[in-house]
């Protein structure tokens, strides 16, 4: 999905496609390498959890805020999680973009919703406070600052880190006057509980260029790919949601190969991310 696609000449596209056939992309990577990923958590003060991710040239900020609200009628014992994606004007230099921007953003939001809307990803019952009356609503806001390709993978890395960093105030349910239940917020701002992110999916985009698959496509490579598949992969390698993008068609065998390929990369990403978050020391945000 290339919104910011450079329009490349046919010869340049030829060069890129042949390079991928030889497992040697224009920046020297092989088909299964990711660009350098830099990540920081707890970078914003007005949020309950936040993260900043930089994948090559793609950069985005994720902020998580929780608020009290009513649960859905259909699921009275579950909280809610909502995703909102915004593309900062910094990220789009060219002639505007309103309609295309909206599609681009909706695509990311719907993919996140799709992979999180199941019983495995997040235990929504842990967000319930009073059944049928009160629950936590988790708002996840993604702000895209710079777009250099592979935005979905970058977004999901940011969302997982921000959710892990999120501290939800530990509320106490008391019975108040008239038999109604009341909710009391803690005085101590550090008295928080964390959401379990053990089964949260990371999105992996596998692009089909020429006759080979690549992951982490740059903007130029995205404009050469005929089809791509996005999937949500959990740490254990389960696939939570798949969508095929772009106009080209795929053989069923190719699709299965791409899913396997994406699963492998997804697990590696989880391992690397968990390792990094465990040893993370809060420090610079990366701009200074």
């Amino acid at each position: 999905m290339s919104l910011f696609g450079n329009n490349l000449s046919d010869a340049e596209k030829c060069f890129i496609i042949h390079g991928i056939q030889d497992d040697f992309r224009t920046d020297g990577r092989s088909c299964d390498n990711y660009r350098t990923i830099e990540l920081a958590v707890n970078v914003l003060t007005n949020t309950h959890g936040s993260s900043k991710v930089r994948l090559g040239n793609t950069e985005l900020l994720v902020g998580v805020k929780v608020e009290l609200g009513k649960p859905e009628k259909a699921t009275p014992d579950e909280g809610r999680i909502e995703f909102h994606v915004d593309c900062s004007p910094n990220a789009t230099p060219a002639a505007q973009r309103k309609a295309a921007n909206k599609d681009f953003v909706n695509n990311i939001e719907s993919m996140l919703v799709r992979t999180y809307a199941n019983k495995i990803a997040i235990d929504l019952t842990s967000l319930c406070i009073i059944k049928g009356k009160m629950c936590w609503i988790v708002h996840v806001d993604v702000l895209i600052l710079e777009c250099g390709g592979n935005i979905l993978d970058c977004t999901s890395l940011g969302v997982k880190s921000a959710l892990q960093d999120t501290g939800i105030p530990r509320v106490v349910v008391k019975s108040g006057d008239e038999g109604e239940e009341e909710v009391e917020l803690p005085d101590d701002p550090f008295d928080v509980q964390h959401i379990s992110v053990n089964n949260v999916p990371i999105l992996v985009t596998v692009s089909f260029v020429g006759t080979r698959h690549i992951i982490d496509a740059t903007v130029e490579e995205e404009s050469c790919c005929s089809a791509s598949v996005v999937m949500g992969v959990t740490r254990r390698g389960r696939i939570l949601g798949v969508r095929k993008q772009c106009g080209g068609s795929l053989n069923p065998e190719t699709l299965v190969e791409m899913l396997e390929f994406g699963k492998k990369s997804g697990r590696q990403l989880h391992v690397a991310l968990d390792k990094m978050l465990k040893s993370y020391e809060k420090g610079t945000t990366g701009y200074l």
Binding site: L44, N46, S50, L61, G63, K65, D86, S88, D141
Partner: peptide, 18 residues
Amino acid sequence: CEYSQASFSSAERKHRPR
């Protein structure tokens, strides 16, 4: 000139960034 404020920028969550 375009000015936009992130949804998570203020203490109260802002619905409309720009």
